[in-house]
Design a binder for these strands. Structure first.
Ligand SMILES: [Mn+2]
Ligand SMILES: [Mn+2]
Ligand SMILES: [Zn+2]
Ligand SMILES: [Zn+2]
Lengths: 148, 148
DNA sequence: TGTGAAATGAGATTCATTCTCAATAAGGAT
DNA sequence: ATCCTTATTGAGAATGAATCTCATTTCACA
């Protein structure tokens, strides 16, 4: 059994909930992915493997995974909520280009340290950090320059 | 004429758009507010003063204000997009308590400096910073302790 | 005052997400 | 193994924020 399964099972047990097959399938698919994803993409992916999980269960399970600290909401893409796993992944910031829509990631350990100190100072028990930087990427700036 | 009006008018002119009465009403209401708001709240507020602005125009104007750099999307509240003005306001981080839902703000000039340096280093033209920290506030932690 | 483009309002539409509820599955107790 | 209670599920209906449509109005400028 993989560690994220242990974590989720323990989390569910704590709340008197069951580690069912649909929940296991969803969890494993999420941790088999290494990109941001939304509920619909996840539902499609699971369906390639098995027809066992309904859309409703996908939508119901995602908030449980968030609560368990395994995933977090990420940059909202168009009109959909997106997620990414955080368990086992370093904190990173998202740089969103408002021209081409690309999303880059960078390390943010230095900023994280500052924020964690701030959280301690005000007695805030910090679990998620969501840092999104919006602007124009270097590629799109170059395009703008060329076309002048 | 207030400065945000000048900025918006210049922005619109640049794009061949007009600084109309509905847009002016929306802008002034936004800058008369000093809290986070969503489109519906804004629409209601404007309606107390005048029946001149439709819901559609509110929804259409908000992205223009974002593009003009006057407001930005903020912490998503329930299912609605929320906004806050940024022009004339220092950057701040949002601390969201996942128990009571409260949203606190703190200064983040130090983190901003780090991020701006990072943006320069990778040639990213940075216009918006959105930093949301999720966890449990000190009040809710105390409640949890008391009830044990 | 006339012209063309931009803007608007009312309401229809979209579509991601949540909800409902009857049917199942889990798993502890006996 | 069988009961029993409670959690879970799937299918589809419902919700509702946001967007779109399009006929009408306003604007800027000549
Ligand atoms: Mn990411
Ligand atoms: Mn704020
Ligand atoms: Zn770009
Ligand atoms: Zn709280």
């Amino acid at each position: 059994m993989q560690e994220h399964e242990n974590i989720f099972e323990a989390f569910l047990a704590e709340k008197g909930l069951k580690f069912t097959l649909p929940r296991k399938l969803i969890l494993d698919t999420v941790f088999g992915l290494h990109e941001h994803f939304d509920a619909e993409q996840l539902y499609d992916l699971i369906h390639r493997v098995s027809k066992e999980v309904s859309r409703a269960t996908v939508y119901r399970t995602l908030p449980l995974l968030v609560e368990a600290g395994l995933i977090q909401r990420s940059v909202r893409s168009e009109s959909r909520d997106t997620f990414e796993h955080i368990w086992g992944h370093p904190r990173h910031a998202h740089w969103v280009c408002k021209v081409c829509g690309s999303v880059h990631e960078t390390d943010m350990q230095d900023a994280v340290r500052i924020l964690q100190a701030k959280a301690r100072a005000q007695n805030f028990s910090l679990t998620e950090i969501n840092l999104t930087l919006t602007g124009i990427c270097w590629k799109c700036q170059n395009h703008a320059t060329e076309s002048q």
